[in-house]
Amino acid sequence: MVNGTVPLGFGDLGLAALLILGIALVDLVLRLGLARRILLATLRASLQLALLGWILTRVFQAEGPLAVLAVALVMGSLAGVEAVRRSSRVVRGIYASSVAVMLTSSFCVTAYGLCVVIDTPGPWYAPQYAIPLLGMILGNTLTGISLGLDSALEGFDRDREEVELYLAHGATRSQAAAPVVRRAARRGMIPILNSMIAVGVISIPGMMTGQILAGESPGQAARYQLFILFAIAGGVALGTLGAVYAVRRLVFDERDRLRTDRIRIRRS
């Protein structure tokens, strides 16, 4: 045992991969047609995590905040693009807005967590704290932003008549868009609130599991998990609201006209 963790070798990973082989056998017997997807998912997960491990090792070795900032920018930008790719509709300018919202919301919450909540032994940007925390916030904020974007774009597109009814009777864009904005914000935030309600009852969350496996006391692991959940909820709320308001800005023009002609349905 090293630092409270039982080290895993490649042989151990091979044994774990037997479970995937089991899934492949089920696929073969039941003819689920998932063989390609199982292979792709396994290869991608293995390659992506190996690459992440390799990069993080180098970032942890580097001194100064630049390496952390570079990794954070790449992760945040990719998450911002991915959030739009998951939406069924797009509007001109949404990629830049999504990346800006993703970076702003996740960086703000991560910085708050690192500077105010955790008293890190080294500098506040210490990569072993900053990057995992940012990664978890990004992963969940991505879901919130994509749901918020999708719901807002669908709402403005589908409920155009209702929004224009308000506009035609003298509403400002914020008044006319309020029902769509409220629905989209709710849709983006409900998953994290639901998972907060269920946490610890149905499953032990991944981070808490990791800390317990690493030798941390369950009480301390629970406190860390709670901190992470609060940080994630903050990131999701900021990101979802930012995304929904970004959509509102993009679908109205300078004379408060609802421009659904700017919305495009993405081919699946």
Binding site: E161, E162, E164, L165, A168, H169, A171, T172, D256
Partner: peptide, 19 residues
């Protein structure tokens, strides 16, 4: 402003939109 204009020049939709 757009809101001022539309309060004075009121468009009534074809098909009577209902909230």
């Amino acid at each position: 402003t757009p809101a001022q204009w539309r309060r004075r020049v009121r468009y009534v939709h074809q098909g009577a939109v209902r909230l």
